[in-house]
Structures are given as structure tokens and as C-alpha cells.
Computed example of a mutant assay.
Amino acid sequence: MDVVTLGETMVLFTPEISGYMRYAGNFSTKVAGAESNLAIGLARLGHNSSWVSRLGDDEFGKKILSFIRGEGVDVSRVSYSPSASTGLYFKEMITDDEVRVQYYRKDSAASRMKPSDLHETHIKNAKYLHLTGITPALSESCYETVMKAIEIATSSGVTVVFDPNLRRKLWPEDHAQEVLLEIAAKADIVLPGLDEGQFLFGDLDAETTARHFFEHGPSLVVLKLGAEGAYYYSDKEQGRVAGFPVHRVVDPVGAGDGFAAGLLSGLLDSLSLEKAVERAAAVGALVTMVKGDVEGLPDRSRLNAFIEGKHREGVNR
């Protein structure tokens, strides 16, 4: 297995009209979750990925499992909970530039994950373990599950990748800061956004923010800068990769998960660090062009054409 990831996936409801959700009469439903987004992104690029979670034993849970399995992701370590429901959330598209999200996930099936749900061999056989800061925020048992997964991976030489993916509504800020820094210190690769860096370290520039993360323990920090691209920092090299021009951002949600999928894809393909970060930025940009968290995730041919197009543009200027 190339990558194992762990976390909650929910059914997403999106109004069919823009503006305040109170005026919406019809909704479309899709499947979305940071970790499964990443797993699907990797599968589309030809890698083996596995998503581990709990779902409610309900129609929404069955919808999620069927969808993710259909995208080529291994779901053999997903279990159903007969006494808890699958989480839901709503994406309010007020304008193209203003998107609000409302979650209904309290006491969901995924929030009841516990360390005994993990299969040690499954994690030990992976090249990367991917985690986000969302999962430990769901419950104390989820926090314990994340820490156990890290312990298993670290003891087996599996590279631990951590995306802080801050969700302020899920937990008190002081507790969030403590746990996010704790996990960052145990991870090998950390993929924060600049806003998460500001949350943890204050309003600093990209290089200083990346260095602060690096000093906590990871061997590589890749700081996501949105349209500006990304800044990477390790003990061997540091640098900035420019973002890919996007004519119109349709939906920014899920771009960070696409970025993570692109980076891991590049590392799995043994690209240079700079080229792996470039691939990450390309996938993130492509995600923003399409409505939905996973609908814009590219296959390899589309990704390569997008990257080559940027390079041709640069040569012609």
C-alpha cells in the first residue's frame, strides 16, 4: 500500500442556487472528507491508497462506502456503527468568493473511532500514513486513535504526513494549538496553510512560519500559500514554487487535500522536492476550478497537460 489515511467522511449537501441557504429549496448530495479526498486524489493518479474510518449503518454510510470504493480506494478497514449516524455537512455558496460550511457531525459514527479499530499490519505495510488535525478534534477516542496510528507507523519506519487542517469550531483554541503542535512534532512531513501557521505562531512571513514548524521536529515542511503557490523547507533545501494561474475559482474547498495528494504522488514517483511541490500546487489549482471536493481531482493525463501548459506559457512570454 502506498498511503493509508484515517478520518471522517460525510455526505455534503449543496444548494442548487447561490445566496443564503435559507432560500434554497433543492440540494445536490456529494461525498466529501479531507482524508478520503486525498485517497481519491492519489487513486486517480495511479497510486494505491486506503481510507480507514467508521460510518453509520445507514443509507448515507452506504452511499459513502460505495462511492469511495468506486473511486478505486481500498475501504477494507472501514466499519459500520449500528448506534451512531453518518455525519453530514452543508456548503453555502453565497458568491463565487464567499463559501460557508456548516457541519452536523456531533457524536457521529466516525467520532467514535478508537485505537482498537486500527489494524497494525495494514499501517505497517504502507509507505506513508496521512493524518489531519480534524480527526483528533472529533473526540478523545479519535485523538487516541491518531496517536496510536502514529506510534505504529513510527515504529515501523512508515513516513507520517500531517496536515493541520484547522477546524476552529470543533475545539477550544488553546487545546487545538497544543494538539496540533504535538502531532506536528511527531510527524515527518507537515503540510500547513499560512492561516494555520498564523494560528500557531503569529502573523509571520512564509519562510519564518515554515522554519517554526520545522524546528518542532518534522524533516520537511511544505507551507501552502493558495494562489501564490507553496514554500518548502527542509534541512537540505528551501524554496518557493509559484502557483498555477486559475481564470476563475469555482469552489476552493478541497484544494488543500488535492495539494497533499499531489505532493505525495510526486514523492511516490521519486520526483525532486521542487517538482513534487509543483505537482501539489497543480492539483490544488485544478480542484478549485470545479464544484465539489473531489470532482476536480485530475487523472494523470489531465494533470500532466495542465503542468505542461504552464511551462509552455512561461517559455512563450
Rank of each mutant, 00 (worst) to 15 (best):
F27H: 08
F27R: 04
T29N: 14
G33L: 02
G33C: 00
G33W: 01
A34L: 08
N37M: 09
L38K: 01
L38H: 06
L38F: 04
I40D: 03
G41W: 02
G41F: 04
A43S: 12
A43K: 02
R44G: 05
G46K: 01
G46A: 00
G46P: 02
H47W: 07
N48H: 14
N48E: 15
S49M: 03
S50Q: 14
W51Q: 09
V52T: 01
V52M: 00
V52A: 00
S53L: 03
L55S: 05
D58G: 00
D58R: 00
D58P: 02
F60Q: 05
F60T: 07
G61S: 04
G61K: 09
K62R: 12
K62H: 11
K63Y: 08
K63D: 07
F67H: 11
I68A: 03
I68C: 06
I68V: 13
I68S: 04
G72S: 06
V73S: 07
V73Q: 00
V75K: 07
R77C: 11
V78T: 03
S79A: 15
S79G: 12
Y80P: 08
Y80C: 08
S83V: 12
S83I: 12
A84N: 14
A84R: 15
A84W: 13
A84Y: 14
T86V: 02
G87D: 02
L88S: 09
Y89P: 09
Y89W: 07
E92R: 01
E92V: 05
M93L: 14
I94D: 08
I94L: 12
T95L: 09
D96A: 13
D97Y: 11
D97K: 11
E98Q: 11
E98W: 05
V99W: 03
V99N: 01
V99E: 00
V99K: 02
V99I: 09
V99S: 03
R100L: 12
V101K: 05
V101P: 06
Q102K: 14
Y104N: 12
Y104F: 14
Y104V: 11
Y104K: 09
R105K: 12
R105W: 10
K106F: 13
K106W: 10
S108W: 02
S108T: 06
R112P: 05
R112N: 07
R112C: 04
M113Q: 05
M113W: 00
M113Y: 00
P115C: 10
P115K: 10
S116V: 08
D117H: 14
D117P: 12
H119N: 14
H119A: 13
H119F: 15
E120I: 10
E120G: 14
E120W: 13
T121E: 15
T121N: 14
T121A: 13
H122K: 11
I123F: 10
